[in-house]
Amino acid sequence: MAPLGLMSGVRLLARSFGALSCANSLSRCTGVLPGSYLVTARSLTSEVGAPPKRPLNGYMRYLVQQKPLITRQHPEMKVVDITSKIAQQWRTLSPEQKQPFEEESQRARVLFKVELQQYQAQLTPAQTAQQAAERRERMAKRKAIRKKRELNNLGKPKRPRSPFNIYLSEHFVEARGTTTQEKMVLLFQDWKNLFSHQKQVYLQLAEDDKIRYKNEMSSWENHMKEIGREDLLRVHILNANRQKEAAKKREKMAKAKEKAAAKTKASAPKTSKAPAKTARGSSSSTTAKTVKGARKP
């Protein structure tokens, strides 16, 4: 007869395997369960110091449900292709088929609002300000990423490389070191130990790359002007354009003033100066005659 401790260990192991089998069977059944049974409602208490997570919408819940199924059916498919396939399936679903996922999303949204209010109520003003600053930083990063992606899609030329970057790209494969950071450190040390005539080659390549960048940017910015994306031009180009427009406005205003002055001069009545001269002449002659008459005895 087996010892009591051994029997209790066997029973505990059996319970563990039973629980695992139930969990596996539940994961296998997710493909046939409706969306309302897939996501259990979270409790209204979240981790201390961690804000509650935003709930998934209906499509994301459908994606979470279908992704393991399609992965098992097509293990050779890439994640991008799997996501595209699930998105296509979601578009073909009827409103009745989408309803369980949308309803569960709505219930989770209500719980999220309650959790968020409870979380914000226990924050100090300093923590609130810190979270606002972190939120602004995240938004700025996302905006920069979106802008960079947009510029790449529009074909913006790559910036010119420095001499060391050119040297780094040529010698990185055969460089010493096991990690990328270690290779870069060792290559930088090698770069500093190069003689001036050895660096001159990379300095000239960098100057040529600057010329390439200048020409490509000029063509690209002209194309951006043509398609109405002047907001993507460089700052000094925008300033030069503003100065040209201001100079044109000043020139136009000066011409308008000259034209208005010429028109006013042409419409003004002309005054004759001859009578005035005659009057002055007659008065002077009369005065002279009076003086002569006064001199006579």
Rank of each mutant, 00 (worst) to 15 (best):
Y37S: 04
I70T: 08
Q65P: 13
R72L: 13
T71S: 14
G35N: 06
A14I: 11
L13C: 09
A23C: 09
G35R: 02
A41R: 15
P75T: 11
S16L: 14
L33R: 05
K67I: 11
M60C: 14
S27A: 07
P55E: 01
L13Q: 04
A41F: 07
P55D: 01
Y62S: 01
L13W: 08
Q65H: 12
A19G: 04
C22E: 01
V64H: 03
G18Y: 00
Q66I: 10
I70E: 08
L20T: 07
P75E: 09
G31L: 06
R61K: 07
R72D: 10
P55K: 00
S27E: 05
Q73I: 10
C29R: 12
T71W: 06
F17L: 12
A50R: 07
L69C: 05
L20M: 09
G58A: 10
P34W: 13
C22F: 04
R72M: 10
E47F: 12
P34Y: 13
Y62C: 01
G31P: 02
Y59H: 12
R54N: 06
T71Q: 15
V32D: 00
E47G: 11
N57L: 07
P52W: 08
R61I: 10
A14D: 08
R42P: 05
N57I: 11
H74S: 12
T30D: 01
L33S: 01
S16V: 15
R72T: 08
F17W: 11
K67C: 02
T30C: 05
L38I: 15
C22M: 06
Y59V: 08
R54Q: 09
V48G: 12
Y59C: 09
C22H: 04
F17D: 01
E47T: 04
L44W: 07
L20S: 13
M60R: 13
N57F: 05
P68T: 12
L38E: 04
I70L: 15
A41N: 12
Y62P: 00
G49T: 06
R72E: 03
I70A: 12
E76Q: 13
R15S: 05
R15Q: 10
Y62K: 00
G31H: 05
K53R: 15
P55A: 00
K67S: 07
V39T: 14
C22L: 03
E76T: 13
L44T: 13
P55M: 01
R15P: 02
A41Y: 09
A19Y: 09
A50C: 06
Q65I: 15
S46A: 14
E47S: 11
A19N: 05
A23R: 05
R61D: 02
S46V: 15
F17S: 12
L38R: 07
E47V: 10
E47I: 09
F17H: 00
S25T: 03
L63R: 06
L38W: 01
L38D: 00
C29L: 12
A19H: 08
P34F: 14
T71I: 14
S21N: 01
N24K: 11
S21C: 03
R42A: 13
A14C: 05
M60S: 15
L69W: 04
L38K: 02
P55G: 03
P68A: 02
P75R: 04
L69P: 02
R15Y: 04
F17K: 05
I70N: 08
L13N: 04
V64A: 02
L38N: 01
S43R: 10
V64F: 01
P75Q: 06
P68R: 08
N24S: 15
E76A: 14
L33Y: 07
G35E: 01
G49A: 10
